[in-house]
């Protein structure tokens, strides 16, 4: 096994607020290998986006990374000075957001901002730059790319805008793309097009991806490995299909059972009772304990991290494991 591209260890990201410290990411560890797609799933507020932002040093002040390391090819990039981070961002690691307007500037033509993005990391003539941009747009399935370069973002449909954002993210052939719910706001037919294209692009270019989504089905069709987040932690990880077919963590099981796709039509769904905890005052021990059907008094203690082959899980009473 070669060393992973990205090695995240013990990552903690916190936001001081009037009401106390929000522990948005609370001791997260995972690795991403070259060319691999890691799916990061969890319900809203579980810390997926903050994890993504933390990896590229984009945590909103006064939020900060309080502990842990993010090693890119063995080099810790937490706490690097801003200019060094900027040299990595967009070049070696880039990000695609749910809302493409986080990437796109409404007052510049698509061509102009793509050229700016190119020139952030390399010296390139206007003519060569334009050719690169046309190729990049073509690669993400934008028809008539030469003409579209002179359009403004609002002249594109939502799906096409997201494609432009993806093209920009891929301009410098990064090692890693962090895609944060990139298809959540799109209709299923456009989502299907983009999923198909991104998967092919990742494969063709050898780009690794962290695919963040709340949708288990989408992740299951994209990701080689999956990490399930709950209340700022990764509670389970492993090969996607293995984890989803035979989950170890009761939360993963609960998420799957909540899906109408699995249940018999018309039958009550085995929903998880209660709601997600406040990150301001997490219960001690396992954060899922108040909602967990398997919880015992010992769950008020920190659960052990179990490693089983290429799987990990954080639970006192994991499913499918003999005690």
């Amino acid at each position: 096994m070669s060393a992973p591209l990205l090695d995240v260890s013990g990552l903690e990201t916190q936001f001081p607020t009037r009401d106390g410290v929000v522990r948005a990411v609370n001791g997260v560890s995972f690795t991403v290998n070259r060319g691999e797609i890691l799916g990061l799933v969890g319900e809203s507020g579980s810390g997926k986006s903050v994890t993504g932002f933390s990896l590229i040093g984009l945590v909103d002040a006064p939020g900060r990374i309080a502990a842990g390391s993010v090693k890119l090819d063995g080099r810790d990039i937490v706490g690097l000075p801003n200019d060094e981070l900027r040299a990595i961002r967009g070049k070696r690691i880039s990000m695609v957001f749910q809302d493409p307007s986080m990437t796109l500037n409404p007052v510049l033509t698509v061509g102009d901002q793509m050229l700016l993005a190119l020139r952030a990391h390399e010296r390139i003539s206007a003519g060569d730059g334009r050719r690169r941009c046309v190729a990049a747009l073509e690669q993400v399935g934008i028809p008539d790319p030469g003409r579209r370069l002179d359009s403004y973002p609002h002249q594109f449909s939502g799906g096409m805008r997201q494609r432009v954002a993806i093209a920009i993210a891929l301009l410098h052939k990064p090692d890693l793309v962090i895609a944060d719910e990139p298809t959540t706001a799109l209709d299923v037919s456009i989502q299907a097009q983009i999923l198909t294209e991104m998967k092919a692009l990742a494969r063709d270019t050898g780009t690794a991806m962290i695919w963040i989504s709340h949708d288990l089905a989408t992740v299951s069709s994209m990701a080689d490995r999956i990490a399930v987040m709950y209340a700022g932690r990764i509670v389970e990880s492993g090969p996607t299909a293995t984890v989803l077919r035979d989950p170890r963590h009761p939360y993963t099981r609960g998420l799957l059972d909540s899906l109408p796709a699995i249940a018999q039509a018309g039958e009550d769904l085995a929903s998880i009772p209660g709601t997600t905890p406040s990150l301001l005052k997490l219960p001690p021990g396992c954060p899922f304990a108040p909602r967990c059907p398997r919880a015992q008094p010992v769950c008020a203690n920190e659960p052990p991290l179990a490693v089983e082959g290429d799987r990990t899980f954080l639970c006192h009473f994991p499913l499918g494991v003999r005690a």
């Binding site: 449909s157 299923v188 037919s189 089905a217 299909a241 077919r245």
Partner: peptide, 25 residues
């Protein structure tokens, strides 16, 4: 539309293919 909906994939190494609708609305 039915072909576009991502399904939960539960087999390792399953080759997932969508049959996306061509074009946009």
């Amino acid at each position: 539309l039915l072909d576009s909906v991502p399904k939960l994939v539960l087999e390792e190494g399953a080759e997932v293919r969508f049959k996306p609708i061509q074009g946009e609305l």
